[in-house]
Amino acid sequence: MKTFFALLICFLYVTAYSQSDFRPVSDIETVGSKLDNMAKSLNTIQSDFHQEKYMDFLDVTLESKGKFWFQKENSLRWQYTEPYNYIVIVNDGVVQISDDGRNQEFQVKGNKIFEQVNNIIVASMSGDVIDNDDFDVKLFENDEYFLVKLKPLKKDISKVIHEMEMYFDKSSLHISKIIMNEPNNDYTLIRYTNRKINEPIPSSVFSL
């Protein structure tokens, strides 16, 4: 019995360790080209997401859920269904927001922060993150994931985001989760589930 428990503890330890044991990727070019090829093959993505926002000052985690649609080149619908109804659509450089039936519209270009966040989301979903001049990019791996760490080089972004971590599933090369670490110990974690790749999306999805 003692041996069983010892083995169980060893197994749990090894499993937990392998989850966090990221090492630098030795062959960056090969992994980079793999992610790049995957990005090129993507036309549409549909996915559920689960978001956790941790606020250190209040020691609280806000959880929300929703659905996500992306279509090349730059069409995005980000829809929260719990605990509130909130929709953000980016299409042809125009942002549309519906907040419990209250709608507003503005240009992405007029809003620097939104533009950058939008670029990051689109780049992360499509895997197109390695060749990004706005960030210092580092690549790691463990048995399960490729981890891309991005540090913003622009001051206005680094004030909001300290570092981004993107976890790509090794078998599919699709993004599994993103963590956005902020300078004040806050972070936003987004997990993607129920992904559908390259299935047609009606154009009505990208308008309110």
């Binding site: 209040l58 929300s64 980000w78 909130y86 966040v117």
Partner: peptide, 19 residues
């Protein structure tokens, strides 16, 4: 988010997308 932290209240305002 409003928290009663004993002798004071802590208040945070965050966007839906986490900003």
């Amino acid at each position: 988010v409003i928290l009663n932290a004993d002798s004071l209240y802590k208040v945070g305002f965050v966007s839906e997308m986490g900003v």
